[in-house]
């Protein structure tokens, strides 16, 4: 009885995972090794197993490499920026007078709960070359107006900025809560021992928040690899494909050009990359809790 009750309890969860994760995963894996396209849909007789041909195709596809580079750039620049901004705002909120806290917390968290599409459209106006607020501010301080969404380099920066702006509030809330859990006495001791503000931040606050930061980094990495809505609305992948993310490319290939085989291969590659990142992160010691 005892030996089967455990497995019985996890069975429903396992069944759900199998149904919604494992089976689709195997389906996509299978699909990625076929030529599934519009002609196959017309007649299943056209379906062929083509092994790794889709992967070879993607390997030689410059657009795929560019999408990988763009997405990687957003992940590598966006995740640290998000964490830093989350941390700074969390510490700021916790250090200001309590009656202002609610206001700032709401203001910083608002982007998280806003619809990405609405947010991206608002940013489109802010980033407009001629009429946008950002360029007006730049000009006001004697800097040149920038062609934010028209230059391949600036567009990637703009996308990263929007992604970070949209996401940092979540980490801020979590980090503010974690910061509140740190006893004030730890800082009292630091003051008595003569540790300054910078030292308090670097040798107390950051190390204690490290496990939380690690968790947020994991979530952000997973989220940013799946970059889609921001470039979809802001730039549609342009200019010159500079803001085409892997997921956006997958969408184009699969749902606009009916090349499901190639799109599935892209999905598999994205999955493997994300696995790799999660694995790397789990094997990097960022947490004192793991001992």
């Amino acid at each position: 009885m005892k030996s089967i009750s455990g497995p019985l309890f996890v069975l429903p969860a396992l069944a759900l995972i199998a149904l919604f994760v494992l089976i689709p995963f195997l389906g996509v894996l299978g699909l990625s090794m076929t030529n599934f396209d519009i002609y196959v849909l017309a007649s299943s007789a056209n379906l062929h197993f083509i092994g790794g041909a889709n992967y070879v195709h993607l390997f030689h596809d410059q657009a795929a490499w560019q999408a990988l580079e763009t997405t990687l750039t957003v992940v590598l620049a966006g995740v640290p920026a998000t964490l830093a901004l989350s941390l700074i705002c969390a510490l700021m909120i916790e250090s200001i007078a309590p009656r202002w806290r609610g206001l700032f917390r709401t203001a910083f968290f608002l982007p998280v709960v806003c619809s990405t599409v609405a947010v991206a459209i608002s940013w489109r106006y802010l980033l407009n070359t001629h009429y946008g607020l950002i360029n007006h501010l730049l000009v006001a301080v004697d800097l040149p107006a920038l062609n934010w969404l028209g230059s391949p380099t600036l567009a990637v920066i703009a996308i990263t900025v929007v992604v970070v702006w949209k996401g940092f509030g979540y980490g801020m809330i979590i980090l503010a809560a974690a910061r509140r859990e740190i006893p004030e006495e730890l800082y009292d001791i630091a003051r008595i021992e003569g540790a300054g503000v910078r030292q308090q931040l670097l040798s107390i606050t950051v190390p204690i928040l490290a496990p939380t930061l690690g968790l947020l980094a994991l979530l952000d990495v997973a989220g940013y690899w799946q970059l889609f809505a921001e470039p979809y609305v802001l730039t549609q992948g342009g200019p010159m494909g500079s803001t085409m993310s892997l997921l956006l490319l997958m969408y184009d290939r699969g749902f606009r050009w009916w090349r499901w085989g190639v799109a599935s291969a892209l999905a598999m590659i994205l999955t493997v990359i994300m696995w790799l990142f999660v694995w790397l992160q789990r094997h990097t010691k960022t947490s004192w809790r793991e001992g």
């Binding site: 489109r124 070359t129 969404l149 028209g150 802001l234 549609q236 342009g238 200019p239």
Partner: peptide, 19 residues
């Protein structure tokens, strides 16, 4: 201008302005 349509603020208003 080498811009995409999402870089317009309001096409009709901008036409009327003479942009």
């Amino acid at each position: 201008p080498p811009i995409a349509d999402h870089q317009l603020i309001n096409l009709w208003w901008q036409m009327a302005r003479g942009d």
